[in-house]
Measured scan of single mutants.
Amino acid sequence: MDLSALRVEEVQNVINAMQKILECPICLELIKEPVSTKCDHIFCKFCMLKLLNQKKGPSQCPLCKNDITKRSLQESTRFSQLVEELLKIICAFQLDTGLEYANSYNFAKKENNSPEHLKDEVSIIQSMGYRNRAKRLLQSEPENPSLQETSLSVQLSNLGTVRTLRTKQRIQPQKTSVYIELGSDSSEDTVNKATYCSVGDQELLQITPQGTRDEISLDSAKKAACEFSETDVTNTEHHQPSNNDLNTTEKRAAERHPEKYQGSSVSNLHVEPCGTNTHASSLQHENSSLLLTKDRMNVEKAEFCNKSKQPGLARSQHNRWAGSKETCNDRRTPSTEKKVDLNADPLCERKEWNKQKLPCSENPRDTEDVPWITLNSSIQKVNEWFSRSDELLGSDDSHDGESESNAKVADVLDVLNEVDEYSGSSEKIDLLASDPHEALICKSERVHSKSVESNIEDKIFGKTYRKKASLPNLSHVTENLIIGAFVTEPQIIQERPLTNKLKRKRRPTSGL
């Protein structure tokens, strides 16, 4: 017993010596996670971090007073192994002897410093981030199933929210409404489509400006004509009531908005009720001829604005009016007729031209339509002016008669200019590109209106002035400009410049 007691005391002394060697000089306990400095002193990692955080910048070693920084600290694995072995020896000594260790306080702390507990403390002390800490805590505590279930439920809930957000973003663009038309193969669909197009076009005519009305009406008319041609002859009974509906809707729209509806009346003529396609083609032919005449008058307007600064050229074209007008009339009417003589009366030419125009518009179905009313009214106005011209010709002399006839021709041009508003800008460009020769010939008609105004002003003063002067240069210039014009009389060319000069002198006297 005595020997055993001596041996136990010796073992205890050895353990105490080893414990003092492996103590931390700051906390005076076994080193936890030993860290060595540049001066080869060993301290606990937790104690050194606490010391360095007390001051900004480098701190001093507690043993040798040298500078220490966080970067200079290094882990010493050898001392950590020695500490672990010492703890194992102490545990074995207690089991063999059955005696508690003399320094129970220190031993209890040593026992608490088992490797499992050290790992837990290291995970908390090290600044490795929240995710690494959570992982280490889960690994160190596998015995708690409640914690695992809560963490898994949190992760699953987070994943569910992310997935639901993604699915919502994908589903939202798919919620856009999609309209699908289910059509049938019955023959009544074509008639319904035609009526739908006509009503939609009328609404567009009321909303859209004048520049786009003609294009819309032309497209709708083409669509309706194609649909009529596709149907068989057996379905004509269905077409006639639908066309009557079209007429009623167009008349109502014309009564409500007459000014807006006139812009599309000329282009919509071939959508009118037709028994066969031949009647629609004839109407299209007549409309094309009318559009040609209207576009020519538009060309004359532009030329008149350009040549208004040259009064000499405008005056020299006075007698070329009849010849150029004959050529335009021959090209406007498709019928083959002989040219009228140069010395014939211009009023007779106008009456013949009106007689040619009237039969074209005397179809029984055309008179029933609303768009032809505008053309009939313009023709009636022309006839009224010609009836007035006959009365004026009986009273005035030959020279005054010529000037009045020219004035009436200008009035006719004004009437025809009203129809110019109905034609589109695209048709003007096509006419100029296809028929430049006709445009040059028809330019002379509009330029002549300037000389007509001068004659009217001469009649106000009650006299006409003449001068025997020749202007050969002007006649040559005008002959080169206009290709299809005829030779003019030299006496009238000489008379016109004198009248304008005298007018300039006598205007201030009349004002006084």
Score class of each variant (00 low, 15 high):
residue 20 K to S: 10
residue 130 Y to M: 08
residue 124 I to H: 13
residue 161 T to R: 10
residue 33 E to R: 13
residue 34 P to R: 02
residue 7 R to T: 04
residue 158 N to P: 08
residue 80 S to T: 15
residue 189 D to I: 15
residue 19 Q to T: 15
residue 27 C to V: 00
residue 161 T to Q: 12
residue 135 K to I: 03
residue 127 S to I: 01
residue 299 V to H: 15
residue 38 K to A: 09
residue 181 E to C: 03
residue 8 V to L: 15
residue 49 L to V: 00
residue 50 K to N: 15
residue 88 K to T: 05
residue 177 S to H: 04
residue 43 F to G: 11
residue 148 Q to F: 05
residue 22 L to N: 02
residue 10 E to I: 14
residue 90 I to C: 13
residue 183 G to T: 08
residue 160 G to A: 06
residue 160 G to M: 06
residue 135 K to A: 08
residue 148 Q to T: 11
residue 52 L to G: 05
residue 63 L to E: 15
residue 161 T to I: 05
residue 30 L to M: 05
residue 124 I to A: 05
residue 123 S to W: 07
residue 108 A to G: 09
residue 41 H to T: 00
residue 146 S to R: 11
residue 177 S to Q: 14
residue 99 L to V: 08
residue 22 L to R: 00
residue 10 E to P: 00
residue 122 V to A: 15
residue 60 Q to V: 08
residue 22 L to V: 03
residue 74 Q to G: 07
residue 133 R to Y: 14
residue 81 Q to M: 08
residue 67 D to V: 15
residue 151 S to Q: 07
residue 11 V to W: 01
residue 68 I to M: 04
residue 155 Q to F: 08
residue 79 F to L: 04
residue 26 I to P: 01
residue 34 P to E: 01
residue 108 A to R: 05
residue 163 R to V: 11
residue 138 L to G: 07
residue 281 S to Y: 12
residue 181 E to I: 06
residue 120 D to H: 04
residue 99 L to C: 12
residue 84 E to M: 01
residue 158 N to Q: 10
residue 91 C to F: 15
residue 79 F to T: 01
residue 188 E to R: 08
residue 179 Y to I: 04
residue 168 K to V: 09
residue 30 L to S: 05
residue 27 C to G: 01
residue 66 N to I: 15
residue 54 Q to K: 08
residue 8 V to R: 08
residue 127 S to P: 14
residue 41 H to M: 01
residue 165 L to G: 08
residue 92 A to R: 00
residue 15 I to R: 00
residue 123 S to E: 14
residue 166 R to D: 08
residue 103 N to P: 07
residue 43 F to H: 00
residue 134 A to M: 03
residue 92 A to Y: 00
residue 115 P to D: 14
residue 15 I to D: 04
residue 166 R to W: 13
residue 181 E to P: 10
residue 48 M to R: 01
residue 114 S to K: 15
residue 167 T to W: 10
residue 85 E to S: 12
residue 43 F to V: 14
residue 132 N to R: 08
residue 95 L to Q: 10
residue 50 K to T: 03
residue 108 A to F: 06
residue 182 L to T: 14
residue 60 Q to Y: 14
residue 124 I to P: 11
residue 128 M to D: 07
residue 126 Q to I: 05
residue 47 C to G: 00
residue 15 I to Q: 00
residue 150 T to K: 15
residue 148 Q to K: 05
residue 92 A to M: 03
residue 107 F to C: 02
residue 16 N to I: 04
residue 143 E to Y: 09
residue 72 S to F: 12
residue 131 R to M: 13
residue 95 L to M: 10
residue 25 P to T: 02
residue 83 V to K: 10
residue 103 N to W: 08
residue 15 I to F: 10
residue 148 Q to D: 05
residue 185 D to T: 05
residue 102 A to T: 10
residue 176 T to W: 02
residue 157 S to F: 09
residue 130 Y to K: 10
residue 184 S to F: 07
residue 61 C to E: 00
residue 156 L to P: 15
residue 131 R to Q: 12
residue 65 K to I: 04
residue 128 M to I: 10
residue 33 E to T: 06
residue 163 R to K: 09
residue 20 K to W: 08
residue 136 R to N: 15
residue 117 H to S: 12
residue 81 Q to D: 15
residue 46 F to M: 08
residue 30 L to A: 03
residue 188 E to G: 11
residue 185 D to E: 05
residue 34 P to L: 05
residue 91 C to V: 15
residue 27 C to R: 00
residue 141 E to V: 13
residue 162 V to A: 09
residue 60 Q to R: 10
residue 138 L to Q: 02
residue 171 I to T: 10
residue 44 C to D: 04
residue 134 A to V: 10
residue 76 S to E: 03
residue 46 F to T: 02
residue 122 V to M: 09
residue 178 V to N: 06
residue 132 N to W: 02
residue 163 R to C: 05
residue 169 Q to W: 14
residue 55 K to R: 11
residue 164 T to A: 15
residue 75 E to R: 11
residue 17 A to W: 07
residue 175 K to D: 09
residue 75 E to Y: 00
residue 138 L to M: 07
residue 34 P to S: 01
residue 168 K to D: 11
residue 77 T to G: 10
residue 23 E to L: 04
residue 52 L to K: 03
residue 134 A to R: 11
residue 125 I to M: 05
residue 171 I to D: 13
residue 78 R to L: 15
residue 179 Y to G: 08
residue 134 A to P: 14
residue 82 L to K: 00
residue 68 I to E: 01
residue 141 E to Q: 08
residue 111 E to Y: 09
residue 92 A to N: 00
residue 68 I to G: 01
residue 167 T to D: 14
residue 106 N to M: 03
residue 98 G to D: 02
residue 78 R to E: 03
residue 57 G to Q: 03
residue 186 S to P: 07
residue 155 Q to N: 03
residue 191 V to D: 09
residue 154 V to S: 09
residue 139 Q to L: 13
residue 136 R to W: 15
